[in-house]
């Protein structure tokens, strides 16, 4: 590892959070200490998140705001967000 040369490629697309992912923590807590009825979504199975988002988007699962939000994301975007959320840890 140490011997591997590290080459910076200016102009490479950054591998940051997928589009939309960081907005979730506006309502879904990123901290274990917050008291809220809004479900915790960090560290969850990606399939659970995908299934929930698709059901919100289709209207099959009733919601207050999630249906309105899920309609703004494609299947691929939802999958990317779910994988990213699964890799995040709650802060203490």
């Amino acid at each position: 590892m140490l011997a591997l040369p590290f080459v910076i490629t200016p102009g490479a697309i950054a591998a940051g959070p997928p589009p939309g992912a960081t907005s979730c923590s506006g309502c879904h807590p990123a901290s274990a200490t917050v008291n809220t009825p809004v479900p915790r979504i960090l560290g969850r199975e990606p399939d659970e998140i995908v299934a929930a988002m698709l059901a919100f988007r289709s209207g099959e699962r009733p919601s207050t705001v999630m249906g309105r939000i899920a309609k703004g994301f494609s299947d691929d975007e939802i999958r990317a967000i779910a994988l990213w959320l699964a890799a995040q840890e709650e802060k203490r």
């Binding site: 102009g11 490479a12 697309i13 950054a14 940051g16 589009p19 907005s23 979730c24 994301f73």
Partner: peptide
């Protein structure tokens, strides 16, 4: 949160991808 990710990318000489925001 989007701006912070973009700043990190720019400081790394990377191109920030187009975001979505809610």
């Amino acid at each position: 949160k989007v701006c912070a990710a973009a700043v990190v990318s720019l400081l790394n000489d990377e191109v920030p991808p187009p975001p979505k925001l809610i």
